[in-house]
Structures are given as C-alpha cells and as structure tokens.
C-alpha cells in the first residue's frame, strides 16, 4: 500500500508537473525545427502529454479534496475561496481540454474529399457515422476583390432529407454542421473538359491537371499540365490571379518518354496531335475539396476552454484586487494561511 501511495504522490506532485512542463516546452521548441509534421505525432511525445494529463488530473483531485476539507471546517475567508475556486477552474479546464484531445485522438475522424461540381457523396462512404446523409455540390464559387484576389471560397451544397431538399453554403470560416459532422471548405481545383475525334478512353472527357491522354491512331500523347485562369507572361506558369480573366491551358505533346513540345491553348482552339488526331479543350469545371470531420471530444474541450478562461480571468481579478486593497508586497497574496 505504501508503494502505491508513493507513486501517487510522485505522479500528483507539483514539482513533477513543473518538470513535465519544462520537458514538453523544450521538446516542442526542438520539434518545430526538426520535421514538425511528424514529430508531434510520435508515441514519445504523446506519452509526455499523457503524463502531464495524469499529473494534472491527480493534482486537481488533491486540490479538490483539500478544498472540501478546509471549507467543511467553515472558517475559510472569502479571499481564500476566490483564489482556490478560480485556480481549480483553471486547472480543471486544462484537464478537460486534454480529455477532449484524447477522445478526439481515438474516436475523431477527419478526411478531405474532392467533389466535382455536380457530383454527390454519401458521408457513410467517408467516415463512420450513425446518421449518414448524402450531399450534392451544386456549385463551387470564388468571390473576388477588385484586384482579382480571392475574398471567399463557397461550395453551394444541398442535402436530401426524406422528401425535402435543403440548401446550404459552406465557405471558409463558415463550416456546415449537420447530423454530428462538420464540413469545411478546404481547397479547390479544376477539371478540364476535352473533345477529340480519337480519344483512346472515349468515356473520359473530364481530365484532371497532370493527367495524360492517349489516342487510337497515334502513339503520341497529350499531358494536361495546368489550367491557368489568368495568364500573364510575367508570371510564367503561375496564374496572375485566381479570377478567370485570361484563361489558358498549358499542355505538352509527347512521344513515349520524349517531350515534343509545350503549348499554351485557348478554349476551343484545335490542337493537332498527329495526322488524323486532334483535340480541343472545351471548358473547365471546378471541384471543391471539403474536410469532413467528426470530433466527439469537442464538447469536452469546449467546456474545458470556458472553465479555463473564466478561471484565469477570475484569478487575475483576485490578484489585482488583493494587491490594491492590502497594498502588501508579498507575491500575489499566496500567504492566505491555508497552504
């Protein structure tokens, strides 16, 4: 029994907590320099966060029981109550935020999905959900400022619910909340429509950037390199703005591994591939990329955040007021006779 108590005391000690915070701070700083994309997801780092969670959790339990003991004696001063309750809220808030994070790490789901304008998806095909629904992207729109820089990206979607069709729009900073999932505007791109007298895969008329097209009557191929909404020589292969002021398509003509040439095409301009083969890019269809997410831990983290914010503000008020009233020079009024 003594051993368990010793382990508990160690795990709940403030010194252990300070040490853990120090280690986590140091390692985080180092982590931003060496491969930040993977570093923070390593087991070692997660174990450290878990230890902090255990430490803070135990410590909070101790604080609560001590607080109850003191209060039940019935002689505690108002200042003591203020200080202890605010600190409890603050620490408990952090514990809840960590619980929320852990729940999300084990049960949260988040996936990016590319949907071409006009297509539908069913959420059941993307993530595990109790209330699946199907979502259609009717239109993807970019709003522009006068100078052609984007001011908003909007996916206009509809969801079929029984016999009714409901319309929603998803834009940056305005995710859609529906049946326990959230859908965010993540990014976008374009598919190009092609027409040819000789396409090998005649089914395929919508082509993505980077794809190669093969033909029946020639061994030559066309690679659709990139769609440029607003072409300007000075910007090279980058679009001047995202607004389709001067749309062009960059493609290459290839024979096997060898590149025969690079071209810049307008829409509906005929491109001669070989004697009997030609091709035109006829139009462009945007696709949107939505992040589909479910986070069952979010409400815990949200409650934790509120507790944490209220606690820290209250503690701040306590420290400022106490010093103003008593004018004492001891630090932060720690000496309240109950420690």
């Amino acid at each position: 029994m003594l051993k368990i108590k010793q382990v508990y005391d160690f795990l709940s000690a403030m010194k252990t907590g300070i040490f853990l915070l120090m280690i986590i701070g140091l390692i985080s700083a180092i982590g931003t320099v060496i491969n930040p994309n993977h570093f923070f997801h390593t087991t070692y780092f997660k174990a450290l966060l878990l230890l902090l969670f255990i430490n803070l959790g135990f410590c909070t339990i101790n604080q609560v029981s001590k607080f109850i003991k003191v209060v039940s004696k019935g002689k505690s001063k108002k200042a003591y109550l203020s200080r202890q309750i605010s600190l409890l809220m603050l620490h408990l808030g952090i514990v809840l935020i960590l619980v929320g994070g852990i729940v999300n790490a084990y049960n949260g789901q988040s996936l990016n999905i590319k949907i071409v304008q006009g297509d539908s998806i069913n959420t059941a095909d993307i993530i595990n959900t109790k209330n699946p629904f199907s979502l259609t992207v009717n239109k993807f729109v970019i709003d522009f400022y006068d100078d052609g820089s984007p001011s908003q990206y909007i996916s206009e979607v509809s969801i079929k619910e029984k016999d009714k069709l409901n319309h929603y729009s998803i834009s940056v900073n305005h995710p859609l909340k529906y049946q326990g999932i959230k859908a965010y505007q993540h990014s976008y791109g374009y598919m190009v429509k092609v027409f040819s007298n000789d396409l090998l895969d005649s089914e395929r008329s919508l082509v993505a950037e980077g794809q190669t097209l093969a033909f029946n009557n020639t061994t030559r191929t066309i690679n659709l390199y990139r769609y440029i909404p607003n072409y300007d020589m000075r910007y090279g292969m980058n679009s001047k703005t995202a607004r389709p002021d001067n749309p062009k398509i960059i493609y290459s003509l290839n024979e096997g591994e060898e590149m025969l040439g690079i071209g810049l095409a307008d829409f509906d301009e005929e491109i001669v591939v070989d004697d009997n083969t030609s091709l035109t890019f006829t139009s462009v269809t945007p696709y949107t990329v939505l992040t589909i997410k479910s986070d069952p831990g979010l409400w815990l983290a949200a409650i934790g955040s509120i507790l944490f914010m209220l606690g820290i503000c209250w503690f701040w008020l306590f420290v400022s007021q106490r010093n103003r009233k008593s004018g004492n020079t001891t630090q932060g009024g720690i000496n309240n006779g109950h420690n």
């Binding site: 985080s28 700083a29 982590g31 931003t32 930040p36 570093f39 923070f40 994070g101 988040s110 940056v172 900073n173 305005h174 995710p175 959230k182 965010y184 993540h186 992040t291 997410k293 983290a301």
Partner: peptide, 15 residues
C-alpha cells in the same frame, strides 16, 4: 472554424 482543427502544432502555435 477555419480549418476544422483547433490545434495542429504549427510553428507559430507551438512557440
């Protein structure tokens, strides 16, 4: 609200 992740360990956040 913007990205669907409240914490992503990006350098600014981490620092």
């Amino acid at each position: 609200q913007a990205w669907g992740r409240y914490w992503s360990w990006d350098p600014k956040e981490t620092w």
